[in-house]
Design a protein around this nucleic acid. Structure first.
Lengths: 218, 218, 218, 218
DNA sequence: AATGAATGAGCGTTCATTCAT
DNA sequence: TATGAATGAACGCTCATTCAT
């Protein structure tokens, strides 16, 4: 009522507000189905401001990807940066990942679940952010492998493989989290670590699982 | 006049042709960006036929989801149905999964990577198909857990957790496959099994990974 | 009321109707101020038809330029093609020009008065059509000059110069015609011919006009 | 602080700067395609200043037309004002015209080549300026005709006709000038004078060009 | 059974114009 | 005096969908 109706904000502030709104709408509707009008409404401004600040719907989307990607990468790396055992670093990183995603589901959805089908400038930025996430995880995995005593043939390719599986599992568990809101990120991380870390160590130690002697079909 | 120019095909055949085209286009463009015209062109028919057979773009998309989901579930379950150890059943199922996805990437993309953001009827069918896939995997995982000697507290929730992680990892490895076309599905399956199955067994056997005693921050 | 409400016309017919309407609207408003909706309304169809047939506003404009330019060039050249003295050929051509413009003012306006400031594809087509008109006139002028006994130094450049002046004068007289609707095209042509043709001959014959000895300033 | 950074200019100077910029932009883009932002940028000020000084885009355009029209008319009339033979007055006027246009192409383009298609207040001012130019030329032509011994039926209407043709030719030769930058305005004027003035005299002297006896068609 | 013709509705984008400072 | 922030109103263009044949 009284009080300045929060207008005439400086550019930087408005930009963040717009990105906030955009992440929500893009997350709920997907890139194509999202309507710029709805984003503007949600941000409490008019459509031309969006274009003044971001140039196009695509530009706005890229800004979202960029911000969310950098936020996530930053948190992950910061959490994993503390000097300690590779396993504990990975654990810290994954915990941060789950905590961030739980607190920020829209951003994760925009970043990881719907961007890839776009083309052009979007695809480029998405790839950049994803590569950053994947590289961070791969780095920790590689460290874990290298640290192991037996360098039994697990190399760079293996690290990437494991990183992909790990990120995919984490992404999927994001959905699981939504259905189990009482599970703390640490518990989820613990479970995931138990699933893969011990397995990795065992593999390195020589205990491998073997498929059946005769294939199912031919 | 001169030879039947692929006309007058029975309804069922036409429908499959249209779905074939639709899966390609939906996969490449995403649901919203896909244009019915392109699908009709690719199927070699005119647009009204699409509407005659499927009623709407949404109806067509649902038909795609349904067919692709059932195909995948069917192959997975068939492969996993052979009586054998739970681990080998899971291995067979995952092998079938990777083989199917490798041979049928468009279908997987439509089914798993872009549908979720839609609403209404689509979301319902997508959920149904996903649930079917997830249920199949959960079933095998549950069997594997139960089969184990020590039923040390791993229950239904754990099975679902593992299934989510497994499906997510598999999905993510789909992308890995695209970059490593020479990796046979069986090798991928083997790696994944080594990552998780051994780990699961170890967990059941009591060897668990433990997080650091003192948290990173305070 | 009764009778088919002139719908479902074949493509070719509709295209011409749309161009008819477009020429009117472009002429009245100018390219940028013209609104595609108004053109569609005037043509008795909906906007998407315009885009279906012409692809874009620019495409539609180019189609207008093309049709009007070719019509005019065709009439001019056909009228001037009859074998006779160069002066009479030019007379016939100019008469046809004035008759065409009088009967088709909108087309002329679109073709000559507003197109040049556009860029890209439009500029190219406009230049093509203008060059055609100018070339036709230049051809007749050149013939008239060459035919003359004294080839007193009037060459190609002169022909182009005269053609430019002639076309410009004719264009301007288009406006004059609008204010003097009772003047037959032949009378206008006659006046113009008297202004320039006799002058040209005199120049060739050696009688030239000379400027004052001392320039007005410096 | 350090030197007055071209600020606080008196109103009149600022206005001229803005008009300078506006003439450039209007000339390059056309009225509708011209964007006020670009004009403001080019003038080195902010957009609201434009509105403060000229009220609207239309007002700014009218100011441009007015200034350019008056400049041209003034130069033409001043050059033609010197007491001398009517032919030499016309020659002086046309020379001034070509010199002005050559040095000031943007202004001419705005004044003569793109304004006419606008409506409302713009059309009115354009008409006013054009009428002024045309009246000046008509005046000289009338003088030339009247001065001639034989007043053989050439009257006011003829003067206007000739003036229209002359202005149109001159306008068209503007384009010719752009392609022949080495042609001095005086040479162009001379050529044009030879084309029309001698012709006019011959007409007055009774030598007229006659069309063919039998029309081309029936 | 099959299709060319046609459109209602909506979205991305732009721009002249104004407000608050 | 001068401007960054903001918007109402259009406009170009597209697309799922239907009609008439």
């Amino acid at each position: 009522m009284s009080g300045t109706r929060r207008r005439r904000l400086p550019r930087h502030v408005r930009e963040q507000q717009i990105i906030d709104a955009a992440v929500q709408v893009f997350s709920k509707r997907g890139y194509h189905a999202a309507v710029v009008d709805e984003i503007a409404d949600l941000a409490g401004i008019s459509k031309p401001m969006v274009y003044l600040y971001f140039g196009s719907k695509e530009g706005l989307f890229i800004a979202c990807i960029k911000r969310e990607g950098e936020l996530l990468t930053h948190e992950f790396q910061q959490a994993a940066a503390v000097e300690q055992g590779a396993d504990q670093q990975l654990w810290a990183g994954l915990s941060a990942f789950f905590a961030h995603v739980a607190a920020n589901r829209d951003g994760w959805v925009v970043l990881y679940r719907q961007a890839p089908e776009q083309g052009g400038e979007i695809a480029a930025e998405v790839e950049r952010q994803r590569a950053a996430v994947m590289a961070a995880v791969t780095g920790l995995v590689r460290a874990g492998i290298t640290e192991s005593d037996s360098s039994a043939g697990l190399g760079e390719e293996d690290a990437e493989f494991v990183a992909h599986a790990l990120v995919g599992a984490a992404d999927s568990l994001t959905g699981w989290m939504a259905d189990h809101p009482n599970e703390a990120p640490e518990r989820i991380t613990l479970r995931l670590m138990n699933m893969v870390w011990v397995g990795m160590r065992q593999v390195l130690a020589g205990e491998v699982w073997t498929p059946p002697a005769e294939p199912v079909e031919g």
